[in-house]
């Protein structure tokens, strides 16, 4: 059976399932680090997503089962569950699933038609409309198993064992008074792990493993992830000439959603660019904007907005990165309606 897993997938369903498989290590690590809440979120997001899929398909007079079978709906929910804060109130993943599939996918006609990444759209909508629930539901790593899941948004942050901050938040808030090496002395760094982004780094590295699997199975190409990492970490490395006032490159790489996004978000074929060259530009753009938002913006982790922005650039990227056709002197650009 092993060869089956390693061969390039032959159907849409197999493509989605290989992404499921690739998500398993990261999910398991997340459960280990953040507690069983991750699994609860997974189930709730899945329910919300499937509900939206069924309602959307029924409203258009189509059978819902076939659309659920291709596995893309659950994949979106899964990605969302991993992106949301693990101690967020329980309504959050459900609503996120509803929004992602309902607004992000069904409005556009279902699988393959959505111009933006449904998971990132739901994330962005929620971080704008429910900022407290979206930013304070972070658990101190490895304490998830002893922490009760909050049922509502009320009191988040006040419960013992919860913390409102991720490592990136910490840097952002503490830079007003402290330098980067001083911030690194914060007790949060000594919770466990490599001391770069405690706990989260294990999750990130597991996602790296999953990404490697996807690459080996030729589900994803290298261009988008590498572009994303070059954009984000390249800028981080450039600004690291001032180490006191910038987040270290390794933290940029292992904290937040960097590796998760690099392999599972910017590689989404539907909302991403299609040509390899286009994927490179797409990834690079998303990386650069993520850095800008992380460093200068108001929102804690800019991936969702960066990916959303680049999703809107995709039609242009697609039109201007077509490879040169054999026998033609140059590549075809633009569209008929934009030829002038």
């Amino acid at each position: 059976m092993l060869w089956r897993i390693w061969a390039p997938p032959q159907s849409t369903r197999a493509v989605m399932q290989s992404v499921w498989i690739a998500l398993i290590p990261g999910t398991l690590t997340s459960v280990w680090v953040f507690g069983p809440g991750v699994l609860v979120h997974l189930v709730l997001a899945g329910l919300g997503a499937c509900l939206a899929e069924v309602i959307g398909r029924r409203a258009r007079g189509l059978a819902a089962t076939q659309a659920l079978q291709d596995g893309s709906t659950l994949l979106t929910a899964w990605l969302l569950a991993l992106a949301l804060p693990p101690a967020a109130p329980l309504w959050l993943p459900f609503v996120a699933g509803l929004i992602a599939i309902g607004l992000g996918k069904q409005l556009y006609g279902g699988l393959g038609q959505n111009p933006v990444n449904p998971a990132m759209l739901a994330y962005a909508i929620l971080i704008v409309s429910a900022p407290v629930a979206m930013t304070t539901g972070w658990i101190v790593p490895f304490q998830g198993w002893s922490t009760p899941m909050p049922l509502t948004g009320i009191g988040v942050g006040a419960v013992d064992g919860l913390t409102g901050a991720t490592i990136l938040d910490l840097y952002r808030t503490e830079f007003r008074e402290l330098t980067a090496p001083e911030i690194a002395q914060h007790p949060l760094f000594s919770v466990g792990g490599l001391g770069i982004a405690p706990g989260v780094e294990w999750v990130a590295l597991s996602h790296l493993l999953g990404g490697g699997f996807l690459f080996a199975r030729r589900v994803i190409r290298w261009q988008a992830p590498v572009g994303f990492l070059v954009g984000l970490l390249g800028l981080a490395a450039f600004f690291a000439i001032d180490p006191d006032n910038t987040v270290p490159v390794l933290t940029h790489a292992l904290a937040g959603a960097t590796l998760f996004s690099a392999f599972f978000i910017v590689t989404d074929p539907v909302s991403g660019a299609t040509s390899p060259r286009g994927q490179w530009w797409f990834g690079l753009g998303a990386g650069v904007i993520t850095y800008l938002i992380r460093t200068y913006g108001l929102y804690p982790d800019g991936v969702a907005f960066a990916v959303l922005f680049m999703n809107f650039m995709v039609p242009l990227i697609d039109q201007y990165t077509r490879p040169r056709i054999h026998g033609e002197s140059r590549s075809i650009r633009g569209s008929v309606r934009g030829r002038s």
């Binding site: 893309s72 279902g110 699988l111 393959g112 074929p269 299609t274 040509s275 490879p323 054999h326």
Partner: peptide
């Protein structure tokens, strides 16, 4: 099933079209 814009077709196209 619907096109998911995976680009597999473009990868194999001998004249480098974008079939999708």
């Amino acid at each position: 099933s619907p096109c998911i814009r995976c680009g597999a077709c473009a990868e194999v196209c001998p004249v480098h079209l974008q079939p999708q």
